[in-house]
Design a protein around this nucleic acid. Sequence first.
DNA 1: ATAAGGTTTAACTGAACAGTTAACACGGGG
DNA 2: CCCCGTGTTAACTGTTCAGTTAAACCTTAT
Lengths: 228, 228
Amino acid sequence: MIKPARKRKPVRSPTAAKIPGREAATEQRILAAARAVFLRHGTAGARMQEIAAEAGVNQALLHYYFRTKERLSAAVFQQVASRIFPALVQTLGAETSLDGKINHLIAIYLDNLSQNLFVPGYLISELHHHPERVQQLLSGAIGADPQIVMPALLKTLERQINERVRDGTMRPIKPQQFVINLISLCIFPFAARPMLSIVFGMNDAAFMRFIEQRKKELPEFFRGALRP
Amino acid sequence: MIKPARKRKPVRSPTAAKIPGREAATEQRILAAARAVFLRHGTAGARMQEIAAEAGVNQALLHYYFRTKERLSAAVFQQVASRIFPALVQTLGAETSLDGKINHLIAIYLDNLSQNLFVPGYLISELHHHPERVQQLLSGAIGADPQIVMPALLKTLERQINERVRDGTMRPIKPQQFVINLISLCIFPFAARPMLSIVFGMNDAAFMRFIEQRKKELPEFFRGALRP
DNA sequence: ATAAGGTTTAACTGAACAGTTAACACGGGG
DNA sequence: CCCCGTGTTAACTGTTCAGTTAAACCTTAT
């Protein structure tokens, strides 16, 4: 069987004329499009064609810049994760007061997530379906091996908690429980937002008011829970 | 083009001989298999072939009992959701004391989720990727229109909170914030488990010990947060 | 100019997938 | 005894999808 000579249509469509000096960074456009699509549909549910369309390019370009769907999704995951985890490590690992850490973490998380509403649902979903990737991806996102950084962080917290317990200004609590309680209260409302919207009848504006209220109340709530 | 007569192999494989009176409920086997596969991979990532294999049946049987993949996944979602939501509504809507509700909800949620570790990740993932289905699915899971049940529940909680505020035994808090804080602390650790496993270096046994400790500490923590 | 090399395109390929078809099995009621 | 409805199977179909190919384009350096 002889392959027939390919019939070709004109390659550069007339609408695609680019301004020469204004070369848009195609790779960045693709990454942004991929992020939008992967956030909405998850890695398994996303379609390369949809990403190409959203970026306004041909599907082959996706493979030119990122060999496979897997690599593209990994790039997106890393980008998204690196907005969330370093803040946690830096804030809790700093040498500021415990109360300061609580205030700061709540403030930056609620602010950050308010502008990236889909991030928590996406991250939980990806980590749930691809637990085998977690280790390497977290390493990249934090910028160091979490198995070295985190124990140090927990030690620091434990010391600070013990000081306050000795002062009589705080009840004892394991540093792990401390961290989990704090980030649960910050992140979960965003992860469960689709549910809350229906269950509590919240539209987008109502949800934002709800979060604004949390910004004011959460620090007090959390510190209150730890009073002796 | 005339279709050639089909060549057929023997239809009933010898190993598949069923005990006649002991007709296993095939539909239930399929549902259980579907649940396992959908929980692991999510609706988009799951493969009908894998479900068939896990149920030990032919792929065509899946379509015989549940017309499409979508219906099968809806059946699974409803089954899983109906283990989580009714308990919430019943517990918080009951006419027991506020402290009793807190204790009860924490106890049953941590117990229940400990035996269904993948449920929170699965539910959050599905709700995130298919928000349009939430309404109908929640209605089925709760057994009533959530937009009628939930406001009543919130009213009840608000009344109980107001009583305690008047007594001076509780700080004021909006009933929505009350509910979200409570279920955040219960559910989030399970949803984020893949992350915690790596970040805190917890294996399965360590995670279970972690949850056991929460069972004891959470009620105190939560009530403490609301002391005046 | 022009050749080189990075960029972008239409068309193609092979595999995987959800869903269909028609044959076969078998117990129960006529 | 036979056929009818439900259950079950192997094989098939049409589509969608990730990934490939080779031609065409564009910019810059020579």
